[in-house]
């Protein structure tokens, strides 16, 4: 893999306990994020993308448990930091944009104040912080930024709210930016703009990005490394070209086949459908987790879990076919 990763995830497994059941949401995740690189994570709904991200931020729900593994960020294990130390990582070294822009800003605090609050670590004058907020807002294309500092989130459209969230991360100048489906809730034209903002942001600050999306087209456009997740596991990962042109795993193949962006760049953002259902994470079958939906499954798939195999430099897949 590429040298000098910003973030290394090693053998991470996460469980949730819900109504006496144990939901094994993530299992044995290994992933590196190269410095200055952009890693895209794709997979259908419920495969554990948000869980992965929230484990990095250490913001998982209280009913969660890190079963095994470690996350190393800039040579520090995030799991060994105290809550206070973690706090100074969040919004400072690692910054995050959430899935739902409509509900991620505080409804009763003015946008300006929220942009100022994220700079609480800086001991500069309030005027300076305010100017930074204005600059960031104008940069993400909010017109009349100065006047709108006193506005409240509900006075902005969904797209604008997501841009305000991006402005927040711009102010923070993180080393790593995590974006959890930042465009899913927005319509297609906005999506293009938001992606442009992100690219711009990366060019300026040279931060690394972990980008989660339903949309393969967007991932192909923005990322240089792609991770395909299925039911809490990484089934295939590799450099973007390699993976798109030499896709190996049957699930990833299906995913690419039915991506609407490949056929027509349509405005419809429904996720491609693959026949069959995700396995029950509370009661996983033995063998390969995809075997029940796989068109090329054979005997071994039902009984043995596949190991991770490197098929070319940086491109690995977990499937008995390879």
């Amino acid at each position: 893999m590429l040298s000098d990763p910003v973030l290394q995830i090693r053998n991470l497994s996460v469980e949730f306990s819900a109504r006496k059941r144990t939901i094994r949401a993530l299992r044995n995740i290994d992933l590196d994020i190269p410095r200055g690189g952009t890693v895209g994570v794709v997979g259908e709904s419920g495969c554990g993308k948000s869980t992965l991200i929230l484990s990095i931020m250490r913001l998982l729900a209280p009913n969660s448990k890190i079963v095994s593994g470690d996350i190393v960020f800039e040579d520090r294990s995030l799991f060994e930091l105290t809550e206070r130390e973690m706090q100074s990582v969040r919004g400072n070294e690692i910054s995050m944009i959430f899935q739902d822009p409509l509900t991620s800003l505080n409804p009763v605090i003015s946008v300006g104040q929220q942009l100022i609050d994220v700079q609480y670590r800086d001991s500069v004058a309030k005027k300076v912080k305010q100017q930074r907020a204005i600059d960031a807002l104008s940069q993400v294309g909010i017109p009349d930024a100065e006047a709108r500092l006193s506005s409240f989130p509900h006075q902005f459209s969904g797209g604008m709210r997501q841009r305000i969230a991006i402005a927040m991360t711009m102010i923070e100048e993180p080393i790593l930016l995590i974006a959890d489906e930042p465009t899913t809730a927005l319509d297609a034209t906005l999506e293009v703009q938001i992606i442009r903002e992100l690219k711009e942001l990366q060019k300026q600050s040279r931060c690394s990005i972990l980008f989660v999306s339903h949309h393969l087209g967007v991932v192909a456009d923005l990322c240089d490394y792609v991770v395909v997740m299925y039911a809490g596991e990484i089934v295939e990962q590799g450099p973007v070209r390699d993976l798109f042109y030499n896709v190996r795993h049957p699930y990833a193949q299906k995913l690419l086949e039915c991506d609407p962006a490949r056929i027509v760049r349509s405005a419809e953002k429904k996720f491609p459908t693959i026949p069959g259902d995700l396995p029950d994470l509370g009661n996983l079958p033995g063998g390969c987790i995809f075997s029940n939906r796989c068109h090329s499954a054979f005997d071994k798939c039902e009984t043995h879990s596949p190991r991770r195999t490197e098929v070319s430099t940086g491109h690995s897949v977990s499937c008995h076919l390879y």
């Binding site: 931020m57 913001l59 706090q87 100074s88 990582v89 969040r90 919004g91 400072n92 910054s95 995050m96 959430f98 739902d100 509900t103 991620s104 800003l105 505080n106 409804p107 609050d117 994220v118 670590r121 969230a165 927040m168 923070e172």
Partner: peptide, 10 residues
């Protein structure tokens, strides 16, 4: 959601 958002910003 906004509570987690605020915490994610440290």
């Amino acid at each position: 959601n906004h509570v987690r958002h605020a915490r994610a910003h440290g």
